[in-house]
Design a protein around this nucleic acid. Sequence first.
DNA 1: TCTTTCACG
DNA 2: GACGTACGTGAAAGAG
Length: 938
Amino acid sequence: MTDASTDDTPDILSPEVVKNTLYLIDGSGYIFRAYHALPPMNRGDGTPVNAVFGFSAMLMKLVEEIDAQHLAVIFDSARETFRNEIYPAYKAQRPEPPEDLRPQFSIIRDAVRAFNVPSIEMPGFEADDLIATYAKEARAKGMDVVIVSSDKDLMQLVRDGVTMLDPIKNRPIGPDEVMEKFGVAPDKVVDVQSLAGDSVDNVPGVPGIGVKTAAQLITDYGDLETLLARATEIKQPKRRESLIEYAEQARISRELVKLRDDVPLEVSVDQLEVKDPEHATLLSFFEENNFKRLVARLQALEVQEGEAPSSLGMAAEIAPSETAYETVVEEADLKRWIAAAMEAGTVAVDTETTSLNAMSAKLVGISLSVEAGKACYIPVGHGAGDGADQGNLLDAPTERPKQIDKKRALELLKPMLEDSSVLKVGHNMKYDWLIFRRHGIEVAPVDDSMLISYVLEGGLHGHGMDELAELHLDHKTIPFKEVAGSGKDQVTFDKVPLDKATEYAAEDADITGRLHRLLKPRLRESHVLTLYETVERPLVPIIGEMERAGIKVDREVLADLSKDFARRMGEYELDIYKLAGREFNIGSPKQLGEILFDELGLQGGKKGKTGAYATGAEVLEALATQHDLPAKILEWRQLAKLKSTYADTLVEQINPETGRVHTAFAMAATSTGRLSSSDPNVQNIPVRTEEGRRIRRAFVAEKGHRLLSVDYSQIELRIVADIGGIEALRQAFRDGIDIHAMTASQVFGVPLDQMDPMTRRKAKAINFGIIYGISGFGLARQLGVEQGEAAAYIRAYFERYPGIRDYMDRAKAEAKKQGYVTTLFGRRCHVPGITDKNPARRAFAERQAINAPIQGTAADIIKRAMIRLPAALEKASLKARMLLQVHDELLFEVPEAEIEKTSALVREVMEGATRPVLELSVPLVAEAGVGDDWEAAH
DNA sequence: TCTTTCACG
DNA sequence: GACGTACGTGAAAGAG
């Protein structure tokens, strides 16, 4: 902690008072020097950035090496200053900055912001005057001053406690160096300059007198006034005449050269206290400008800083004592909030809309928070929004409160939301990202407090804002119901009055910011910062784009299917009632159980804990030998499921604006790192039965396009072979042989060329069982054999592959010791039940501990591929869009002419997705399929 | 709101 | 020897 102001006990541990130093960086001077010193550099979009790079590298060095307590970058403001009033020609002939330097000025100001360093400028004064004033103020407070510049005009400021530092040669400039340059001590520099003048700045001086002569004269006479007064004594006639004739010009020059140290400061020295930069902002800034070396240095710094001690108790920046929420309805107020966000470099953002579905939601308002306890709400769509509400004129007019026009508000917010030096923090940022994206704004860079929580504590609890606020901040958020009502009285957010809306919405931004401040530092402490920065966070816009793309669903196909299913269900119903002896609700497991076991008297009925008979598919299949009814029920159920869950609901989910279906991928829902999908769930579209695959045919490609499906072959078993260290399995994967047959041959001793399907099936079941944390009971059930027999298989398997057993023991021990297991990419999967007293629950947790690293590593790998794919496609000028992810499969919509190239590229990226972080001991294989619909692409 | 069932990897 | 079981999800429907 740099802030010692709250600590009133004297520092008795340190023998000397801690040196407090103010670093003043001459920003304007540095820009020109860096520009000329560095070879031309361009970033991705062609913008020249050599001066930006030099500037950033210099700041980085200061951050890395220097223990400054106070720091500021000082810039020249407009070209006109008070000096022009004294002498209009001053700096008048300066050329315009070069073409390829001009665009760099504003980027350098972004850089300063990204470093979280104050930047100071003031109209009417040069940077040098501000530096002089700050130096004086700082000295008055007993601070040392380092001026980061090599500008000779600043050398007059060097004195006890004030030194300069040449940022390019990286050498200090003290009295000796000044003496070398001007031939006099720093306090006489002004006098020398007044005489010698400066052709670059148009300081006239005295003709015929240069620095050398001036220094000698000043040394001889003491100072300028004395010299001018005694000019007649000078022996050299020319020099004497000049000094007499141009005495006044020398005095004017003095005015020009002498720096003002009485500039009225708007920002005090105390306010220049160093704040740690937000690494994510910096990283994003470096990446945007293609500063690879700085990215590496920043990451090295992160490692170095390592386990920073966390503060005891909760600081006011996380738990303020009171809150102030503001409704913003005036442009001036909005501009003030935007300026505050730019100034701070980090802002929490939240959007309020009419729906949880980001692709159909209408934007109603935006909230911002820059510091804890303070937030604003900017309504933009309250009351009758968008003219969509076409209520007739006789109805009571919908109240439309005063608010900033939506377009105007977004226009004002856009530069800040897209500014690479301002970090936008959201909770479930993908949602807000999508809302803004639909309004033509690409929010970047972003942080997501939900994802931060997810990588820190995935598996321990949910990551919704309300839950986290309660857990971490001991704060109960306003329930949505309280502002929008519930049940039939519930209204959309645009109908909520502004005062209530502000309390709710501003709180969300406030809490988001506070969670971010609390949780972000823990990423590094918990060693999941890299996972967050390289996997989860970059995925936000990637998945956002996938959701925005959606997939075309053919409503005709589904409508026909629905009719067909309905007709056949009707036929089954007649049969079923006849066989049952009466009509009943076939969809009711309770009624069905009573029919089967009580009325028809079938054997083997088992009641669950709720007292109802179990009637699941397994039970009904077993009953099929006793009666014709169970088989009919199973048929009916399949149709009912397909009709209600898929055929009918998918049609309802087609977005009327896009004509496509836009799923929502949940990024923080699973305990293993997988995504989940909802509204609709596209990850459980039927594929295993012929009847079910008919649903898949409704997922089609746009005209002129085809669907490309690429999936990892056996990715989880490959991971098992790798982390279990099973050499035989690894070799089998390298050789590309049938892995289940190979297992069967090794475990059951059947030669490969004599493999029978039954033996292979057993081996396949064992292989899957391994992934799930095998148990004799589970395997027996899967294979339909006695538990003893299954246990024998497992024993044989472990004997053949002892590495598996070792892995399982390791996983269990790791979970027990730490409460979590980790994937190959460092994701933590928490297994809270591992210490449960209840042996069943503990065994369950142990199986989770075994499965999670396998499933989770596979999830990491496909996520890494997803992050790279859009960029790889773009680079290859391919227009394919990534639409869906189904755990080990990615689905693309590809222009017909680009199928081959796209397919090859996607496979290449997917197969190389572990690199360069990791090289598995087995190859990853991705297989591609193409078709006009999703079934055909499989 | 909880439970059961079943669709997927 | 307990305990109740393969791992991870989401949606629809019935039950209450």
